[in-house]
Design a protein around this nucleic acid. Structure first.
Length: 417
RNA sequence: GGAGGAGUGCCCGAGUGGCUAAAGGGGACGGGCUGUAAACCCGUUGGCGUACGCCUACGUUGGUUCGAAUCCAACCUCCUCCA
């Protein structure tokens, strides 16, 4: 089915958000009448969200923009159990304190993307610890456990992955899917929520919720999944060598965030423009015909648009300018990421590799050494050939910075204080 | 509960007493080419020291040995068969 009537489905289908749906017809009807209330759940396993969650956030954003009510579900309760989906080994159990702290950080990520409030299509945020924490074991088993068969549960991908890789899957984790199914039911009961969305790795969990709703309350719940994104080179979205790309500026500076998107593969640019920006499709389709270096403009647009949504337009444009100065115009930009260093440390001069090691650009002195030996390190754009070369505060340029570069792309300024 | 097999670096995978910081591949990073791309070619890929070197590492904890990823014991996990 491709001729959707509802704005919601038309848009997200054109933009590439759809992987699977439990019932397109019903979904299309409800969406046309703006009668959808959908939720997406977010784990509280990290102190903030990263770029990998952006797809789900954009999905919720379109959902709201087309007149529907989104529910952001914080997994305060389910995180205590741990979702085995897509993980080849179990994670360490997080304490309640950490989970709660993480939740606070994650909540902040949504404010730029969704309107929260009490109006009809305003988003609401709830925490499944509110009901999961209170469950009593025997009652829960008797009431809901009878609706799940092990026969079916062990066929789920999340379970199969562990079995195939001969990794343990604890009974605790095995329960996750039951709890998520119960979440869906509970949200349906409390908020008349009638749809769950998520990445395609959540398909099994979503189906469980739909079936539970039908068996217990005779509900007709819907499920919709989006493709699990990897870049064309196969890497997971939002991960780089130096770690995840976080949505929080404290963890990932806006300039770095912008760079992440700027460095998108040629093959992915249009796909990403559709998914992660609101640039209209006509404009994107122009880029689809372009091959070669002209695509760089599309990448810049992608980076600036994504950064605008996340951090605001001003910051996005600033990041764009820094990039143009640094890369296109070979100008010095004092707005590159900056690290402070005490001037005293440098007056006597330190070996180049040690200076490099003082920064986030490398993880160890050995790595710094290797990098320099391989010709990948520059100070003030000049290649440093000897890792022992003494660097002093004389390297400070007229703007009061020392510019360090690793490879062609990564730059860092040192400010002496 | 019993019998047998297995657990290696970011991932896959070789290694069954010293020559092993551990083959090979993938990934990642750096260099070259280029467009801050892809593909390709070259190099690097545990930490500390300028370096002969030292430390940490082959599921976990102990043991045997001059010396252990390699042998032994216990424990954890997985697989196969039996109950």
């Amino acid at each position: 089915m491709t001729n959707f009537q509802s704005n919601f489905l038309k848009i997200i289908s054109d933009r590439g958000f759809i992987q699977d749906c439990s019932d397109f017809d019903t979904l299309d009807k409800l969406a046309s009448d703006e009668k959808l209330i959908a939720y997406i759940g977010f784990d509280c396993t990290a102190p903030t969200l990263h770029a990998g969650s952006l797809l789900q956030i954009m999905l919720l954003r379109w959902f709201q923009k087309t007149g529907n009510k989104p529910i952001v579900l914080m997994g305060g309760g389910t995180t205590k159990v741990g979702d085995p989906s897509g993980k080849d080994e179990s994670r360490k159990l997080l304490t309640s304190e950490i989970i709660n702290k993480n939740m606070e950080g994650i909540k902040k990520c949504f404010s730029n993307y969704l309107e929260f409030g009490s109006k009809k299509s305003d988003a609401i945020m709830v925490d499944n610890a509110d009901w999961l924490d209170r469950l009593s074991y025997i009652d829960f088993l008797r009431e809901y456990g009878q609706h799940f068969t092990i026969n079916k549960m062990i066929k789920f991908d999340s379970v199969q992955l562990r079995l195939e890789r001969e990794q343990p899957l604890s009974f605790l984790e095995f329960n996750y899917m039951v709890l998520q199914a119960f979440d869906f039911l509970e949200l349906a009961r409390r908020y008349k929520c009638n749809m769950q969305m998520g990445g395609s790795d959540q398909w099994g969990n979503i189906i469980n919720g739909i079936e539970l709703g039908r068996k217990t309350d005779g509900l007709n719940l819907l499920g919709l999944t989006s493709p699990l994104l990897t870049s064309s080179s196969g890497a997971k979205m939002g991960k780089t060598a130096s770690g995840a790309i976080w949505l929080d500026q404290e963890r990932t500076p806006a300039y770095e965030f912008w760079q992440y998107w700027r460095n998108t593969d040629d093959q992915d640019v249009c796909k990403f423009l559709k998914l992660f920006t609101e640039v209209n499709l006509d404009e994107i389709s122009k880029f689809e015909k372009i091959r070669g270096s002209e695509l760089n403009e599309a990448k810049i647009m992608l980076a600036t648009e994504v950064t605008s949504l996340c951090h605001g337009k001003e910051i996005a444009l600033a990041s764009e300018k820094v990039a143009r100065d640094t890369f296109s115009d070979s100008k010095f930009s004092s707005d590159l990421p900056t690290t402070n260093l005490s001037r005293e440390d440098l007056t006597a001069g330190v070996p180049a590799f040690e200076l490099l090691n003082k920064t986030e650009l490398v993880k160890s002195k050995a790595e710094a050494r290797r990098l320099i030996k391989g010709g990948g390190f520059r100070i003030n754009d000049k290649i440093i050939e000897n890792e022992l070369e003494a660097i002093s505060d004389a390297a400070e340029n007229q703007d009061g910075f020392i510019k360090l570069s690793v490879g062609k792309k990564r730059h860092l300024l040192i400010k002496l204080i």
